[in-house]
């Protein structure tokens, strides 16, 4: 069975339960072998972007909505964790409660964005979502008393489990790996359920989807909420990982980057999003010695993929 078939089925058909378990164990063993902080940092960022690319693929690949403002939801999750852990709950459980609150808050904002934009499709939605991301950033920049403005928030504590702080790169690797696995399992489940079918049906033909009894407004709102919640959790991790937050981390370029990851990997394919996140996060790291050519390489890669695999590396 080639990779295309695996992707078509939307699950790791290639991997029987045993190989699946072995792959997961190997992934968990990585920090025991690799101690180099630079490598671990790179891999952790790959995982962070995998979460975001998979969340965005729920929107772009399934629902067919091009959200250019996903970073807004990441920022909501990150700042909720930053603000609450620094100022309100410095206790060990503060991070986890804040992570949850940030996710719920982002989900509500996502539903509101979904409800207010349900009539807007295509290019118009791109612009509105881009605007949404920028609005969030401007709020972060200007609500100085809450967010620290351009100075941001410093001293965000690392996630802790009782007195054990997940402070080293290796421990944070385990944390983000668990997040990635949870997100992958849940998105694959959604894809292969009535939710995924309803989203794809809306993408394929709105009129026929409504004629099949699908309430489009409702399913668009659910989709937006799911992507927002996942993005906010990634944002919460980001806050605890960097211990420092600044609106600069949430510029619209980040959203565009994630859009590129989904397109490169192949919209509509969860494993494509994983691959796109991996490639585009690692390229700048790999070509670091040639830093001034990094954008050129990035552009060239996108260019070549669009010519030879217009639907993405793992797209159909």
């Amino acid at each position: 069975m080639d990779t295309a078939t695996v992707v078509k089925r939307g699950k790791l058909a290639l991997l029987n339960p045993y190989t699946k378990i072995i792959v997961v164990i190997l992934l968990f063993a990585v920090p025991l072998v690799i101690h180099n902080a630079f490598y671990l940092d790179a891999v952790n960022m790959v995982f962070y972007f995998i979460i975001l690319a998979v969340a965005l693929d729920l929107q772009m690949g399934f629902l067919g909505v091009y959200n250019f403002g996903i970073v807004g939801f990441v920022a909501i999750g990150a700042y909720t964790v930053g603000i609450l852990t620094v100022g309100v709950w410095p206790q060990w459980w503060g991070f986890w409660v804040a992570l949850l609150i940030g996710a719920v808050f982002a989900g509500i904002v996502g539903v509101l964005l979904g409800l207010s934009t349900f009539r807007i499709r295509g290019d118009y939605f791109c612009i509105v979502s881009l605007g949404f991301g920028e609005i969030i950033r401007y709020v972060l920049l200007n609500w100085v008393s809450l967010t620290g403005g351009p100075m941001g928030i410093t001293g965000v504590p690392a996630p802790r489990i009782f007195s054990l702080a997940l402070a080293s790169r290796g421990q944070l690797y385990w944390f983000v790996l668990i997040l990635v696995l949870i997100v992958l399992v849940l998105t694959v489940r959604m894809k292969n359920s009535y939710l995924g079918r309803a989203w794809v049906a809306i993408r394929e033909d709105e009129v026929a989807a409504e004629a099949s009894g699908i309430n489009m407004v409702q399913y668009q709102a659910i989709n937006m909420a799911m992507a927002a919640v996942i993005a906010a959790v990634a944002g919460g991790f980001f806050a605890g990982y960097l211990n420092y937050l600044n609106p600069e981390s949430f510029v619209s370029n980040v959203s565009l980057n994630i859009v590129c990851m989904v397109i490169l990997g192949g919209a509509g394919s969860i494993w494509g999003a994983v691959m796109g996140a991996g490639i585009l996060t690692l390229i700048p790291e790999i070509v670091r010695p040639l830093a001034q050519y990094s954008s050129l390489l990035y552009g060239l890669l996108m260019f070549l993929v669009m010519i030879f695999r217009p639907k993405g590396v793992l797209g159909k």
Binding site: Y194, V200, D205, V207, A208, A209, G213, K316
Partner: peptide, 15 residues
Amino acid sequence: RLFKEMSVLDNVLVG
């Protein structure tokens, strides 16, 4: 107006 990129089975499941 079918869901063109979906399988025949999935089209009916959407129904």
